[in-house]
Computed example of a mutant assay.
Amino acid sequence: MDANQQTRANPFGMDAECENCPELCETRERVVHGYGDVGADFLFVGEMPDDESDRTGVPFTGEKGEVLQNVLGYLGLNNSLPGDDEPELENAFLTYLTRCHAERSPTDDEIRTCEPYLNAEIRMINPEILVPVGQRALTEIATEYTTTPADEFDAEDDHATTIRGRGFEIVPMRDPGEQSEADREAFVDHFQSLMAGDYRQTKGRRSR
């Protein structure tokens, strides 16, 4: 973790009382901004907080989060037990496209409204690898950071593969709630091979 980092939770001090989407203010308990190591090489992006993340204020907590936290543990990026409400992440940062819980998928307008939060986190962290978790995150990340039409990417087919993006390598992950044991093993194996190689080779070639 960066020596200057004071907290893993919302380390950049983003608006915790955001009211840009009035409808979502009625369905959330709290705003869920990013969480983790601000010096991370690996940034994981999901669609939106579920009810457990809304409760804890930390992305990818609860049942679905336990799957991802377990994967991070195998990769040496999580030093706490899977299911921890405040995981001890090292070299990983977790966030969402949108920051408020609702019992439905976010609208395109809501994603666009939250986009400055995500863009700011990516810019300030400057990760090496983006991991879109689930189809919606993959579509949005591919739209922003690749030159390939986003509808050509599929979170199931592209799970645990590497996509060359603009300034980043992108490694899609299936939604944790849909993953099999084989999916988890495939992701761990692929990501370990990236970590063992020269994944930092894109540094210095980015244009923002």
Rank of each mutant, 00 (worst) to 15 (best):
S53M: 11
A40P: 11
N119E: 14
S80A: 12
Q135L: 01
A186T: 08
A102V: 01
D50Q: 05
S80Y: 05
A102P: 01
V58D: 06
M173Q: 04
H101Q: 02
E121W: 15
Q201W: 03
G76L: 04
T148Q: 04
E178L: 11
D2A: 15
H159W: 03
I122L: 07
E19W: 00
Q192M: 13
C100Q: 14
E19L: 12
A120L: 11
P116Q: 09
G83N: 03
A40R: 10
M14E: 13
T161N: 08
N79I: 02
C21S: 11
G39Y: 02
D109E: 13
A182P: 09
Q192I: 06
R208F: 14
E178R: 14
T147K: 12
E156V: 14
D37S: 10
L43G: 10
E103P: 03
T61G: 09
T146E: 06
E169P: 00
Q6S: 14
T95P: 02
H33K: 03
R184N: 05
G36T: 05
T139E: 07
V133T: 12
P116K: 10
D85P: 12
K203F: 04
F12V: 05
N10S: 10
P176C: 05
A40D: 11
L138Y: 07
Q135P: 01
M48H: 10
V45Y: 04
E181R: 04
E88Y: 07
D151N: 15
G39K: 13
L68S: 11
E178C: 07
F187E: 01
G83T: 08
F153M: 12
T148P: 04
E88L: 09
K64G: 05
A142I: 03
E19T: 15
Y145I: 01
S193M: 03
R8A: 15
T98M: 10
R166C: 09
T162I: 13
Y145C: 00
T147M: 11
E110D: 13
L118F: 01
E17K: 15
A150S: 13
D85L: 01
Q179S: 03
